[in-house]
Write a protein that binds this DNA or RNA. Structure first.
Length: 255
DNA sequence: ATGGCGCGCGCAGCGCGA
């Protein structure tokens, strides 16, 4: 089973990239973020033509998540339980024997801002809910744009970024809390090249210069981590014309 | 890197992302 996550930064604009990428990679399950697409205009026909069923919860202009899968999804959850939120940022469902959570963690804008405090509160609610979800579903995969670079090796210039949003100690503490639930950062189960990132600013030739951050992640419960044989970042879509600023992350599970 | 890009909305230029 091949799992993937990709912040597409507008599903409408990225639909051709996505269709080509689905054909090339043939993942079984794909979590999308920043679809910026209301449900009544979701491109269901094109996604089905690509061979996938879709669950989605979206809104105009901002946010929006979708879960694409070749198989049938059951027990869907469309909001973060225990957290009042007008923003469409979370989707969960069971696919085969795996519980999949797709999330788009708030960006936080700047440390100390209202959006930053919203981000921390959202993450606190996520940690609390995932603790329960792990009890119910031992085979749990959490994929998405976490908007957190967990360690300095996930940052192209840790000195420049020190204390900033996406790397601040408070945000990293929430990420560690997810690991302390037992979830494993699938990317770090394997040796990886230095300078592995999933996001690069559109400005300043950041991608060409590899000035990036690793903020998109696949977390696996112990039972799934045991089955994980590979995890990698696919930078090919970031090289295309009109790319998303994020690259997809993929993981392969045995069985 | 800190103005610089790309998106949505909507028709100018701003808010937002990270």
């Amino acid at each position: 089973m091949k799992l993937a996550t990709w912040n597409v930064n507008s599903l409408k604009v990225r639909l051709p990239h996505l269709a080509d990428w689905l054909a090339g990679q043939a993942p079984d399950i794909v979590c999308l973020q920043e679809t910026k697409t209301e449900d009544h205009v979701f491109p269901r026909t094109q996604i089905e033509a690509a061979g996938y069923r879709a669950l989605y919860t979206g809104q105009k202009t901002y946010n929006g998540v979708a879960l694409l899968a070749k198989g049938k999804a059951t027990d869907p959850v469309l909001t973060l339980p225990g957290f009042e939120d007008a923003q469409k940022r979370l989707l969960a469902a069971t696919l085969d024997d795996v519980r999949v959570v797709c999330l788009y963690v708030p960006n936080g804008q700047s440390v100390g801002s209202d959006k930053y405090h919203y981000k921390l509160a959202w993450l606190d609610a996520l940690v609390a809910w995932l603790a329960q979800e792990l009890e119910r579903h031992p085979r749990l995969a959490v994929l998405g744009d976490f908007n957190i670079a967990p360690e300095d090796r996930d940052v192209h210039d840790p000195t420049l970024w020190a204390g900033q949003v996406l790397v601040s100690p408070e945000e990293r503490a929430r990420f560690r809390a997810l690991l302390e639930l037992g979830l494993k950062d699938a990317f770090r189960l394997f040796d990886q090249p230095e300078g592995s990132y999933t996001w690069w600013d559109y400005r300043m030739g950041a991608f060409r210069r590899n000035l990036g951050l690793r903020i998109d992640h696949i977390l696996l419960s112990p039972a799934l981590a045991e089955r994980c044989t590979a995890c990698w970042i696919d930078t090919a879509p970031r090289r295309l014309p009109r790319p998303s600023d994020h690259a997809p992350v993929l993981a392969e599970l045995e069985g």
